Simulated scan of single mutants.
Amino acid sequence: MKLLLAGIVLILIIMWKPMPSGAGDMWRAYSDMREANWKNSDKYFHARGNSDAASRGAGGRWAAEVISNAREWVQERTGHGAEDSAADQKANEHGRNGGDPNDYRLLGLPEKY
């Protein structure tokens, strides 16, 4: 039992450090999306935020998944279409799984982003 508890604590310690940074990556992508105000570019920012967060390790990946799932859950409950939510989740997973966010980048989106 002590070994199991020690293992759980070790996993939490390893995951904890990148969690806030992963959440910051998600916030930065969201802020950039709002600032860019570029029509139909949200999938790129979803993929980028998830990719940046997941690159920090297990904690960042966990933070990205929780934030993405919560956001899509809220959007579905507030009247946004399930089809758009499914497309957002596809972009989220693409980024979290190491896919290139630029696969979703629209032509003309400023290089700043």
Rank of each mutant, 00 (worst) to 15 (best):
G79D: 11
E65P: 02
A64Q: 02
D88R: 03
R77S: 13
S68K: 04
A91E: 02
Q89R: 12
A87M: 14
E72W: 01
R61N: 05
R61D: 07
G81M: 09
A87K: 07
E83G: 08
V66Y: 07
E65M: 10
A86Q: 14
G81N: 06
E76K: 13
N69Q: 11
G60F: 09
S85M: 12
Q75D: 12
Q75I: 09
E65C: 05
A87E: 15
G81A: 11
I67W: 00
N69S: 08
A70E: 04
G81I: 09
R71V: 07
S68N: 02
A87Y: 06
R71N: 09
W62C: 06
R61L: 13
E72K: 03
G81Y: 07
A70R: 05
A70W: 07
A70S: 10
K90I: 07
E72I: 03
N69A: 08
T78S: 11
R61P: 03
Q89A: 02
E76M: 14
D84N: 15
H80W: 12
H80K: 15
A70D: 04
E72T: 06
E65V: 06
E83P: 01
N92Y: 04
S68P: 04
E83F: 10
R71D: 09
E76I: 15
H80D: 11
R71K: 15
E65Y: 04
Q89V: 05
G79E: 11
A91W: 00
K90A: 15
A82I: 12
D84A: 15
A64R: 00
G60P: 00
W73L: 14
G59A: 01
A70Y: 04
A63K: 00
A87P: 05
Q75H: 09
